[in-house]
Design a protein around this nucleic acid. Structure first.
Lengths: 338, 338
DNA sequence: CGCGTTGCTGCAATCGACTGCACAATCCGC
DNA sequence: GCGGATTGTGCAGTCGATTGCAGCAACGCG
């Protein structure tokens, strides 16, 4: 016999399947005589009974799965988030279905449709752009979801994001402490909330400290990539901007700076200091090791999963947004200006 | 109305649900009048009908999901493999459920049990140790699975692995061409097939080329980690072994070497050359950039998924094993010996 | 004209678990 | 010792799609 069914358990325990079902379900166990329940449970165990989630899902319209929508799993940012999510999902009896959108709206839509037809009970979305009609629609349809890392405009959705503003402040403060006064910022894409939030935080931080707040020290990257970072830095340099330090929108952009440094034999940190953002793995192996803002990715994932489970349990619960605190990891890419 | 059901489609098309079902299923469409089928399909489309995989799964005992068992998603080795897998699974209408085992046999067992109760139709396993009783048991029970990256002993399971032997040969050949004659090997753990295969390949390659085949030039790492790599290299160095190049069991072990170089002010590649294995991301950003053997991870994943789908379609199909070709990426960590 | 095919469609059961409702058994108080 | 309340269980229908079997119509052939 393959995996025993509820009926097998009921027969073996000498009760009706309905009774067995109630005995096995903690929520309805109270309806059953305690002795009977115990007996059923024992029989179920000895038979190695495992409820079939498919059958259960058919009746209850619950699948025990949630969709994880991320741009690209091979971006080192996301694996820790996914692990954090699964760490919470698993003990709750849920699993996550991961899909990659490559930031392509069509792909995203198709993937989300596919997940919905798979009856996922909710979504954790890491692909939110500032303006995101698809998510707005889902939201309207009452689909449960939680945003991580990004926060879309005008959408009342729970979100977990790092405290970008404070992170940027840490970076700027560190550079200011070292004596830098002309600090450039290579901002992330303007259509991502992360990009604009960090850029705004940068200007505020610079102003608050009375450092040079010069628009010519700001360049915006088209994508969150090394190449875009390199391009942005070249633009700044070619325009003749003068600065002794760079706050990069994220680590990949900072890596792009390293490429430009090599091209133009600029020495880091002697000529220019650089601070990244995210603390990707292996940054300490770079030469020089990259100073960066550490983001608790795993914790972000865990928090998001918890929030999603809450929302699934009670969809009327008002949406909260959580900002997670960051810290600066000082390594070798920052030093006092010459 | 929420998502329409088959019954809705049937009603709208004026046919019996059974007919609608047959019309919508390509495999049974032949049983239905072509006109009727066309009509049903059109109605289904206009209603936005999406079959409910849960209900379908209940009847057909198929879930459209497969389990992906990996040690740790945050290890940069795995994300590309997972993407490769999903790229193949998705168009076939399957999704992958990812679990992390952290190489803990208990956790692995629990995870696999959980996946089985979720009715996955097969497994892609990346955690295989050389001796793996659990997998042997599953195999006996007729569970469909495919192994990636590792090949367990005495288990007749399809597997996709990089052609480790050839990869190691490429590395050794490259070093020999540069003029190295005393080459050390920091082998991966002895309980992993990858570890022993590469170590064996190393000895053969060295012998074949008439280089020094000295047992004192071999150290085995306990784990596939930076720390283990560093420890192994220190052991070799402390024992007074003389060599001008190191072939590391993988990139992480090679990174461990970098740490030791920094500790003992050994200059790479001037004093010692290093070759890694896997071509993890961002290796080109190291100083010096790491020469390594590139493994087509995404392709490995894709191939594994294809094989698994084949095996699901026809479980009697004999198990094949595929070796994927590798290439050497020469960067800055190798040079001629002084 | 009658009988047997063929082709298409409908009926109803099924997968495994859940659940509203009815009914039986027990218990209580009076 | 009887009516009514309180448990505890069983019955049967349900979720949505699939499928073996039966039935019906049209058609061909003798």
């Amino acid at each position: 016999m393959q995996t025993p069914t509820l009926r097998d358990v009921a027969d073996a325990a000498g009760v009706h399947p309905a009774t067995a079902s109630r005995a096995l379900n903690p929520a309805t166990r109270g309806l059953v005589n305690a002795d009977t329940a115990r007996r059923v449970i024992k029989v179920a165990e000895s038979l190695g009974y495992r409820p079939n989630p498919i059958a259960r899902g058919l009746k209850t319209a619950k699948s025990g799965t949630v969709g994880l929508v991320i741009p690209d799993l091979t971006n080192p940012l996301f694996p820790p988030i996914v692990r954090g999510i699964e760490a919470v999902l698993e003990p709750a009896g849920y699993s996550g279905l991961v899909v990659n959108t490559d930031n392509d709206p069509h792909r995203e839509q198709a993937q989300i449709e596919s997940l919905r037809s798979r009856q996922v009970e909710g979504f954790i979305v890491a692909t939110a752009l500032l303006d995101h009609p698809l998510l707005a629609r889902l939201q309207q349809e009452g689909v449960v979801m939680v945003m991580v890392n990004r926060r879309p405009d005008g959408l009342d959705v729970p979100s977990i994001t790092p405290d970008d503003a404070t992170g940027i402040e840490l970076a700027v403060q560190h550079l200011a402490d070292l004596g830098h006064t002309r600090i450039a910022h290579l901002a992330g894409p303007a259509n991502t909330s992360t990009g604009v939030v960090r850029a705004r935080a940068f200007r505020n931080a610079v102003r608050d400290r009375g450092l040079d707040d010069d628009p010519s020290l700001l360049a915006t990257c088209r994508y969150w990539t090394e190449d875009s970072g390199a391009t942005a830095l070249r633009t700044l340099l070619d325009a003749g901007a003068e600065f002794t330090a760079v706050v990069a929108g994220n680590d990949l952009i900072a890596l792009g700076c390293y490429d430009v440094f090599a091209e133009r034999s600029i020495e880091c940190p002697r000529d220019i200091s650089v601070v990244g953002f995210n603390d990707m793995p292996f940054l300490d192996k770079l030469r020089p090791p990259l100073t960066t803002v550490a983001v608790p990715h795993q914790q972000i994932g865990a928090e998001a999963a918890r929030m999603l489970l809450d929302a699934i349990a009670d969809p009327t619960r008002p949406s909260r947004s959580v900002l997670l605190p960051l810290s600066l990891v000082v390594r070798g890419s920052t030093a006092a200006p010459r």
